[in-house]
Amino acid sequence: MASPRRESRRISGSERIGMYTLLRLERGGLEPGLPGQFFMLDVPGHIVPRPFSICLAEKGELAFLVNPVGPATRELCELKRGQTIGLFGPLGNGFRTDVERPLLVGGGIGIAPFPYAAQIMGNPPIVLGFRTRRQAEAAKLIPRAEVCIEPQLVTELIPEGPIDVLACGPEPMLHAVRALAPDAQLAWEAPMACGFGACYGCVVEFEGKSRRLCVEGPVLNGRPPVLPLIDDQEEEEAGS
């Protein structure tokens, strides 16, 4: 698995996709990691960085889908091509993608890890649910996906029978998915200050245990955590 690295990168593009912004950065030597892993992006003028799933990893580029929910994410959406920002990653545990009967289930901004996952997994079936038509414009990032808008729920698009679900979305959606597919790999979300296990800000309760999403997730039921994250070995690898 790729060791996390902290780098500064130039923004190669920023495009509005409905209510979200796809922020493209020059990749340089950064490894994109696995679908479901994330990077911490510095926000100019803000004390702590913000976590974003890797959305696209096309040649020479890394892209992140940003939902402007507060001051920091709004500022990220306003960044222009040519500006530079710091980022740190890839972090966390991603999805197991070598599953037999995959189905990707995304809700709202939870679509973020799936363009990259679809690329890696060779276009598996994908269902996406959104609250509004404007949100649903993000579905163009995955042209083959089946899409629904509330009041229809994305869980209504999950077929019966044995499937290996990879899901990302709001917590009520994750619970609903889990009720239908108990072994689903679920990517959770919580506010995070560090991304490497230091702050305990992103802890959620899962199967009776407290989990730090940054080191044990964000995908729970996915790959086992690999610790330590930031070790001396990393320097040797980075320097080689």
Binding site: I47, V48, P191, M192, C199, Y200, C202, V203, V204, S210
Partner: peptide, 20 residues
Amino acid sequence: RPGNAQPRLAESDFGLLNSI
């Protein structure tokens, strides 16, 4: 101690608020 419920973090002007 399981700690406090989510959300536990919020940024403010000039600082970070935590409730771990």
